[in-house]
């Protein structure tokens, strides 16, 4: 699989990342190389194989729905770059 400039721009958008011009060139080249290698998977016959998400069969892990960590609003917000009135503060999103 070849990665081209347009695909890099599309992936930047999906990833919410903007690369510098030199990073764009590097990513295009390196992702093409890596995907060229990854494409070897296509030679493997996986017809009818059920995809595995977990290494071991673990199903329906339940616990009681109770609060165990108490009110940690202040300590959580202490890491926020901006907060106001006990909430995260973000730029205006609706005109």
């Amino acid at each position: 699989m070849e990665i081209n400039k347009d695909l890099v721009i599309y992936l930047e958008k999906l990833a919410r990342i903007e690369l510098s011009e030199s990073e764009k060139v590097k990513v295009e080249k390196e992702l093409s190389e890596v995907l060229g290698y990854i494409d070897m998977l296509s030679e493997l016959d996986t017809e009818g194989v059920e995809p595995a998400s977990h290494s071991f069969p673990v199903n329906n892990v339940f616990r009681e729905d109770v609060v165990t960590n108490g009110d940690s609003r202040a300590s959580v917000l202490s890491n926020a770059p901006h907060s106001k009135d006990g909430c995260f503060k973000v730029p205006k999103t609706v005109e």
């Binding site: 990665i3 695909l7 890099v8 599309y10 992936l11 930047e12 999906l14 990833a15 990342i17 690369l19 990073e23 990513v27 390196e30 992702l31 890596v34 995907l35 990854i38 998977l41 296509s42 493997l44 996986t46 194989v49 059920e50 995809p51 595995a52 998400s53």
Partner: peptide, 28 residues
């Protein structure tokens, strides 16, 4: 950044089956 973009690629519409789903089959 590069790995995030590679992740977005293998999950993106049109490539999901050929890459991500295939990888989960090989995992099995």
């Amino acid at each position: 950044k590069k790995r995030i973009m590679l992740g977005n690629f293998v999950l993106s519409s049109g490539y999901y089956d050929a890459y991500y789903n295939k990888a989960l089959q090989v995992k099995a």
